[in-house]
């Protein structure tokens, strides 16, 4: 009665062939090539010219735009993730409480998530329009003199953040709802017996119970925000005066506008190191802070 197992390496690797080939072709080789190219000047047409660390030194010590770009990216990320996660959490908690119309609310808040960022950005460029944008028409009606959002260096980034939160809030909301669903009811009953009011229950039961999911949402959102491109391209092209130029947009400009492909690779590696550091940091944080059942 020998049980037949498939201990066949050749067979296994045949199944894996596309994936392994993909790892080498679209990941391994390009990563090494990008690293090598980050030490060169290259306009894509001629031969790459080796320049040592000059791209990195330039980016980190001489290029004012790079630092502005990093600041903008951090600003966008902090704003979008904080606002988006908080709103999503509150919305999820609210939707979780109501029984009638739950599915409808879920679908409505989820609607922008499935649309392309390009279309939503085009729509919001119109809503944010200074003179006849819907937002300002109503803001002025209630007596607030609103800025010309996308053409004002102080307000362009907040506008992009608002729009991104609107577009994305349904996604973490759905994830939080699934998490809320899994919290055992006995915890709330126990809290109620201890005399905890709703606010306390939220702070001392809901939040700790959801903490792994909150962390997951925050980490993935940060990673996504650091690579924000579509809405910047559609709404501001990085302007006005570079006030919304994010790192991904600057990378794109370096490659496909300035034809500085070596520099673009160096920016990509700066991004990689930043995100790698962030991921590492958040995994350490998980081990310390997050409450698992």
């Amino acid at each position: 009665m020998a049980r037949k197992h498939y201990r066949n390496e050749i067979e296994g690797y045949l199944f894996l062939a596309p994936q392994l080939l993909g790892l080498v072709l679209w990941l391994g080789i390009p990563m090494l090539a990008a690293f090598a190219l980050s030490f060169t000047h290259w306009d894509l047409f001629g031969r790459p010219e080796f320049v040592g660390l000059r791209n990195y030194i330039n980016l980190l010590f001489h290029d004012r735009r790079m630092w502005a770009t990093l600041f903008n990216t951090a600003y966008f990320t902090a704003g979008t993730v904080t606002l988006g996660t908080t709103l999503a959490l509150l919305l999820a908690a609210a939707v979780h409480q109501v029984s009638f119309g739950q599915t409808l609310f879920k679908s409505i808040y989820f609607l922008p998530v499935i649309c392309s960022m390009t279309a939503i950005a085009a729509l919001w460029r119109w809503l944010f329009s200074g003179d006849f944008g819907l937002l300002n028409l109503y803001l002025e009606r209630i007596g607030i003199s609103a800025p010309d959002w996308l053409n004002d260096t102080r307000f362009a980034m907040p506008a992009v953040i608002l729009m991104s939160v609107w577009k994305g809030v349904g996604f973490p909301m759905i994830i939080f709802l699934a998490g809320l669903h899994d919290i055992p009811a006995v915890y709330y009953e126990a809290a109620e017996i201890d005399g905890a009011d709703r606010r306390r229950q939220f702070l001392h039961v809901t939040l700790p119970q959801l903490s792994p999911i909150i962390l997951f949402v925050v980490v993935t959102s940060v990673i996504g925000c650091f690579q924000t491109f579509d809405q910047i391209y559609m709404m501001t092209s990085g302007g006005p005066m570079g006030s919304t130029r994010t790192i991904a947009f600057y990378l794109f400009e370096n490659a496909f506008v300035f034809y500085k492909f070596g520099n673009a690779c160096a920016i990509a590696y700066v991004l990689f190191v930043l995100l790698g550091g962030f991921t590492h940091f958040s995994i350490r944080l998980t081990q310390r802070w997050v409450h698992y059942q």
Partner: peptide, 29 residues
């Protein structure tokens, strides 16, 4: 579903690649 040598290694390598942001490989690709 299959058992063969190096299977889990391939899986972990694949998992690890998730942290590589797409812009890194953009120019060479």
């Amino acid at each position: 579903r299959l058992r063969f040598r190096g299977r889990d290694l391939v899986f972990y390598i694949l998992l690890a690649t998730m942290i590589i942001p797409a812009p890194v490989t953009l120019v060479p690709i």
